[in-house]
């Protein structure tokens, strides 16, 4: 009897999984809302004749008036609130998606190498991860952003550096179990090089895990950014980010709750959407989880 060893075909299952995702109404609604917010943040400010840093001294602390030039009013410097929140969104969203991408790529490569190569290198690499895991996350991220001199890039680097660990661990486990699968052995026996195996088998088979956990990274990065900016360590005034807008809103809470609610609501909506999308992806890719 001959046994035909057929490698799983990830591409077709990927299509199936996305079809399953599209049937999830909450997740799809979240995708639409998120797209809308992203578009608004990046293109919305273009429709105003001023930027979020321009003070309109004739309109200080203007109230909400949807049909005026300042639809959501202004803050106590006369800066337009809506534009500031949208501009803050640009910063938060960019850092969020870019940060998740970079952290994800670093984690995937690190994990794939450790898991596929195995042996002593794996032990060493995972030892490092274990030590970094033992660090209190806040301390690490605060110290790193200080070391890199504060500012956007420093903040970005600090967040990425602290968030690549989880994808690394997950991908390593996946790569490890894949490396033992029959079709990988068959590929190796068939004369494929390690590079080919990694590119053609390991990576495509890790795709679903990476998508699921990558989608969880985005809200985490956004949360970290706004958290640090809230504490005064991240993005600094006059540049707006959701974190420092919320911080400013907290300070003015007893006089004007808008300053807190506007950026807070935006941040919460984005995090809601990202979490629903992540849930939807997990359900679509890993249906026995339910």
């Amino acid at each position: 009897m001959t046994v035909e060893i057929v490698p799983p075909r990830p591409v077709s299952t990927l299509g199936l999984q996305f079809r399953r995702f599209r049937r999830n109404r909450l997740a799809m609604a979240s995708v639409y809302v998120l797209t809308l917010i992203v578009l608004a943040c990046f293109f919305g400010p273009m429709f105003f004749p001023f930027t979020g840093q321009d003070a309109d001294f004739g309109n200080i602390s203007a109230p909400i008036d949807l049909f005026s030039i300042h639809p959501f009013g202004t803050d106590d410097f006369g800066r337009d609130l809506l534009v500031r929140v949208l501009e803050g969104g640009q910063v938060s969203l960019t850092i969020g998606f870019l940060g998740a991408l970079v952290a994800g790529v670093i984690g995937v490569l690190y994990g794939a190498v450790a898991g596929y190569v195995g042996g002593r290198l794996d032990g060493l690499m995972m030892r490092l991860v274990e030590i970094l895991y033992g660090f209190p996350y806040v301390i690490l991220v605060i110290l790193l952003s200080l070391l890199l001199g504060g500012g956007n890039v420093a903040l970005f680097a600090a967040i990425v550096f602290t968030l690549w660990l989880t994808p690394a661990v997950i991908v390593r486990a996946q790569a490890q179990s894949l490396a033992r699968k029959e079709f990988i052995e068959a590929a190796r026996a068939g004369g494929m090089t390690h590079r080919q195996i990694v590119v053609e088998h390991i990576v495509p088979n890790c795709v679903s895990v990476v998508i699921v956990y990558g989608s969880l990274l985005v809200p985490e990065v956004i949360l970290s950014e706004s958290f640090l900016s809230f504490l005064g360590i991240g993005i600094k005034e006059p540049q707006a980010s959701w974190g420092n807008l919320i911080q400013a809103g907290t300070a003015a809470m007893d006089t004007d709750l808008r300053l807190l609610l506007l950026p807070g609501t935006m941040l919460a909506i984005v995090l809601f959407c990202l979490n629903f999308i992540a849930d939807g992806l997990r359900d679509a890719f890993d249906p026995n989880d339910r």
Binding site: P219, L223, S226, F227, F230, G243, I246, Q247, G249, T250, M253, D254, L257, L260, L261, G264, L267, A268, L271, F272, N275, F276
Partner: peptide, 22 residues
């Protein structure tokens, strides 16, 4: 669960402060 995960402490904290304390 969704609220706790999606609304950060530094948003819900001040909001609750505003509502229940102020």
């Amino acid at each position: 669960g969704v609220i706790g995960i999606a609304i950060p402490i530094f948003v819900i904290g001040p909001v609750m402060q505003a509502v229940f304390a102020l």
